[in-house]
Each structure stands twice: as structure tokens, then as C-alpha cells.
Simulated assay, not measured.
Amino acid sequence: MLCHFFLLLFVTGGSACTGQDEHNNELLRQVMREENGHIRWKVYGFRDDPYKEKVEIYYGNGKLKEVYFRKAGRMEGIRTVFFDNGNLSESGNWHEDNRVGEFRYYQQNGHLECVQHFGLIGESVE
């Protein structure tokens, strides 16, 4: 199956872009859509930190697949991944593209499958 994508790019500068989230100072910066109009991903910037971004990735059915944060292009902060039924698949914290701390992995039915711990440089400590 051949998928075609097109990119809508919003660059924030002196003026604010629509899509602002008043609770956490997010500004919508980029939207990628498939030809059929379904959103593939969104990228948000933050007014108070120009190097921080939030990325949302979507399934073809429009449900949220993944949310993560990056700073200066590197994964930084909480990342959550969802099954296409909306249930949580995994969650954990990242620091400079490395897994750090507790990661939880779930089955499609929502039951916790396992918990894994990572050290400061992303190695498993179990």
C-alpha cells in the first residue's frame, strides 16, 4: 500500500499560531496529514523553552498512538505509547535519548505485563 503524505508547517515567530494550549504554554508548530486528511503527527513548541517540543503520532483511524517530548532534537521526558484500541502500551521517562527509571509495559487488554528499570545511560538495571 502506497501512502502519500503532505506537510503543513507552522513556524512560530513574532506571532502566535492557533492551537495554543493555555494550560502548558504549547504552540502548534507542525501538522503532517495523509492525503485522505487524517493527521499523521503534530509537533508543538513551548513559549518558555524554544528547544523543547511535544510530538503526537496518530494511527490511521485517528486515535493517538504515541506522545513524547524532545529537547534540542533528543528524546527528553515522559513517552507514552498506546495500542490502536486506546489502551496504554508502554510508558517511561527518557533523558538525552536514553531510557531512565521505571518503564511499564502493558498488554492490549490493559493488564500490566512487566516493569523494567533503566540506569542513567539507558542500560537495564534488573
Rank of each mutant, 00 (worst) to 15 (best):
L2C: 07
C3D: 12
C3Q: 12
H4K: 12
F5C: 04
L7G: 02
L7N: 07
L7I: 11
L9N: 07
G13R: 03
G14P: 00
S15V: 09
S15K: 13
A16K: 06
C17N: 12
C17R: 13
C17M: 09
G19D: 02
Q20A: 09
E22P: 09
E22Q: 11
N24A: 02
N25S: 07
E26F: 01
L28E: 04
Q30L: 13
R33A: 10
R33H: 15
R33W: 07
R33E: 10
E34N: 13
E35A: 14
G37A: 14
G37M: 13
G37D: 05
H38Q: 14
H38V: 10
I39G: 01
I39P: 00
K42A: 03
V43A: 01
R47T: 12
R47H: 05
Y51S: 13
K52R: 10
K54G: 00
V55G: 00
Y58M: 02
Y58W: 03
N61R: 11
K63H: 06
K63G: 02
K65C: 02
E66H: 01
V67E: 01
A72D: 06
A72F: 04
G73T: 03
R74L: 07
R74S: 12
M75F: 12
M75P: 00
G77A: 08
G77N: 02
G77M: 04
G77C: 03
V81C: 06
F83C: 01
N85F: 08
N85C: 09
G86C: 03
G86F: 03
L88Y: 05
E90T: 13
E90R: 14
E90K: 14
S91V: 10
G92S: 05
G92F: 02
W94M: 07
W94P: 00
H95R: 15
N98G: 07
N98M: 14
R99M: 12
R99N: 08
R104P: 00
R104F: 04
Q107E: 10
Q107N: 13
Q108N: 15
N109S: 11
G110L: 05
L112C: 01
E113N: 15
E113D: 14
E113Q: 15
C114Y: 13
C114S: 15
V115M: 11
Q116A: 12
G119E: 06
G119A: 13
G119P: 06
L120A: 14
V125S: 14
V125A: 10
